[in-house]
């Protein structure tokens, strides 16, 4: 019962993040949607860790958080570089890499 409730919350957070990533056009909001999806996945790890009585899931959440920090640093510096060049944050207008 308790495990199911936690899993449903984690899934809902992941789905909201995925929905936001597909619908929104502002690159900052896309970035934050990715963070939401990562958090939904982390919540799943913690819930199953408790269900299975093994702490390996907690270690994986540690790795997820480290990865999110690295992603935030690189992603935001790319964003600053793009904004300095184009003064736009709408992903539909950033088409330089389109072949």
């Amino acid at each position: 019962m308790q495990t199911q409730a936690y899993l449903v919350v984690a899934t809902l957070i992941f789905l909201i993040g995925a929905m936001g990533f597909l619908i929104r056009r502002n690159i900052l909001v896309l970035f934050m949607s990715i963070e939401l999806m990562l958090n939904g996945a982390a919540m799943l790890f913690v819930t199953f860790s408790r269900q299975l009585r093994q702490m390996d899931g907690h270690v994986f959440v540690f790795f997820i958080i480290a990865l999110a920090a690295a992603e935030a640093a690189v992603g935001l510096s790319i964003l600053i570089a793009i904004f300095r060049l184009k003064h736009r944050v709408n992903v539909d207008e950033l088409t330089e890499l389109k072949g």
Binding site: Y6, L28, E35, A42, V46, R50, H58, A68, A69, A72
Partner: peptide, 23 residues
Amino acid sequence: TSDAPFVGALQVLVYAGAIMVLV
């Protein structure tokens, strides 16, 4: 509440603290 105090503390420190300050 799901018995992961270390991860909970890490969430506040790194996510709500460091990453969101950067954003």
